[in-house]
Design a protein around this nucleic acid. Structure first.
Lengths: 225, 225
DNA sequence: CCAAAAGTGTTCCGTCTACACCCATGG
DNA sequence: CCATGGGTGTAGACGGAACACTTTTGG
């Protein structure tokens, strides 16, 4: 192989994963105690180095799979972070990825194995390196995208009630939404499908369960909430 | 220095700059013929490798300065591109940055030196590697941001007419805007300042020149167009 | 029987859109 | 004097926000 770029220096590149979940009507983040030096023991996102033979997306998916046991997660790049001294050990450029998972699908054994915690985004501790910045940017990205993309379903089980769905929007956007207006809008957009199942866990009367209608969404991408 | 991450492999990281300008009522991109192997002679964005002792932003600013002779440009990260074979020569991860410049400030000698051309974004040729993707993402970013940030002034001289400003919006958003509605909205938002100067280059009657009122903007960031 | 969550429509107001004519001037 | 771009206001449509009461049922 010809050595084209030999005179330039190489750097380590890592990916860091911002894993969001939804629990107790709050948007939560999966973080853990860093298990390596430097920074051992600090709260941190979970990450990994990008291998010579894997793309950035592959690396992010690999890390997410290790972490959650799940493939095909909703995942989006947040951005590259490249300050010289962002990592206290060596020069490392990191690309942040944000993923949404349904906490119910998540294997709690993995949580224990990696010593992870679900932490509410408004109670986040100081994280390792520039990870707080990454989280901030990821939240901005979510807030923008949730208005035009059906992100919210990734945070919920397949079947969910309209109240749960509304709580997801409220948690991400951090404001209250009027119940009637919310339901009106949801019903105008034909991308959620009513089932004849009733959820009786959260109320005595019971609430109708809905599911995301991916087919309808694929046919009509125009979507505003 | 302790070698923390020695077992992992390093990669080359570059920055690629997407430089937008506005000329002849069109949004244009500064591209050139690649002057190195691999891909010598192909149309390409202008880029450079990230040095061991510079941040990603520094690298992007350095490349932009080389290219335009200008500092303190409006610049935003578009994202990291990391497919394994994206560069035909070696494994290189690239971070794309998008910049806006006023073509009038631009030194044409530099254009000749680097053999660059201003090409209208709807006449873009096939570019080297994944540069067309980068440009697509950059345009998406512009379209989103121009609605809430005063980007447009970066593409214009300090003094400009309302018609010019409108043409910038039309070029970026790729649709026509009603003149009266546009001017009504602009005047509601007090971030542009009328001068008593008249531009007589584009019309016989002459058009009032305006300037961006940065102070007013800094005081009131709420802004929608 | 009562507490607790589900479910349902209407009115108002502000914003966006569509639309056409006069003005000033250089050539 | 006329062609060219500059400049101005209004009416109707539409979408978002505010708002309160009835229903069901488990305990």
């Amino acid at each position: 192989m010809t050595n084209y770029y030999g005179e330039h220096s190489k750097v380590w590149v890592s990916v860091d994963c911002i894993v969001f979940g939804f629990e107790e009507d709050k948007l939560k983040l999966l973080i853990g105690r860093r298990q390596m030096d430097p920074g051992r023991g600090e709260w941190s996102l979970y990450g990994g180095f990008v291998g010579a033979d894997e793309s950035l997306e592959d690396a992010a998916n690999r890390v997410l799979f290790q972490l959650t046991g799940l493939k095909k997660l909703y995942m989006k790049q947040v951005g590259a972070f490249g300050a010289i001294d962002r990592d206290p050990g060596e020069r490392v450029i990191s690309v942040a990825y944000c993923a949404l998972i349904n906490v119910k699908d998540y294997d709690d054994k993995l949580r224990e194995k990696f010593n992870l915690e679900w932490v509410s985004i408004d109670e986040l501790p100081k994280l390792y390196s520039d990870h707080n910045e990454m989280v901030r940017d990821a939240i901005k990205l979510l807030r923008r995208r949730i208005k035009t993309e059906p992100l919210s379903f990734n945070l919920l089980p397949e079947l969910f009630t309209l109240t749960q769905l509304q709580h997801v929007y409220e948690a991400i956007l951090d404001n209250e939404i009027d119940k009637r207006n919310f339901r009106k809008r949801i019903k105008q957009i034909a991308i959620i499908e009513k089932t004849d199942l009733i959820d009786k866990l959260t109320s005595k009367r019971g609430a109708t369960l809905y599911r995301f209608d991916r087919k309808a969404y694929d046919e009509d991408h125009s979507f505003k909430l």
